[in-house]
Amino acid sequence: MAELRDLYQEVILEHSKAPRNYKEPAHTNHKAEGYNPLCGDRFTIYLEMDGDTVRDIGFQGAGCAISKASASMMTQSVKGKTKAEAHRIFAQFHELVTGHSHDHEAELGKLAVFSGVSEFPVRVKCATLAWHTLEAALEGKQEKVSTE
């Protein structure tokens, strides 16, 4: 059962039970909604942008452990970063969870706990929902995001 533990690492379970930045920041000026209707995962990502910088970020919603922990850890990793840096982290994260490249594990820091997702292809959509929604929020896109 090593594989299962690779997916449900302690850090992931802990974030899914006690998500960080689970709030709508008071000075939100960008937001986007992500929704995967087949599994019912639904998150809203809130951003307080200061120019190109993510001054504050929060999220609310419901979903599986993977999607929720991913949203929680994403908010921690992009807070204080520029838009370009956030895009870059997501690009590396995406490579990691799809199994295309583990080259950036060191750079990804804590987010590297999601490497186990690559063994569970059907769960990639869970791990990336919050991230795609973040991208939409950063770009000011209005349409609902889905990774299904």
Partner: peptide
């Protein structure tokens, strides 16, 4: 209660 059906599906699948 506190476990999403998709997580249950993955664990049962294993």
């Amino acid at each position: 209660d506190d476990v999403h059906p998709h997580d249950i599906g993955t664990i049962l699948d294993q």
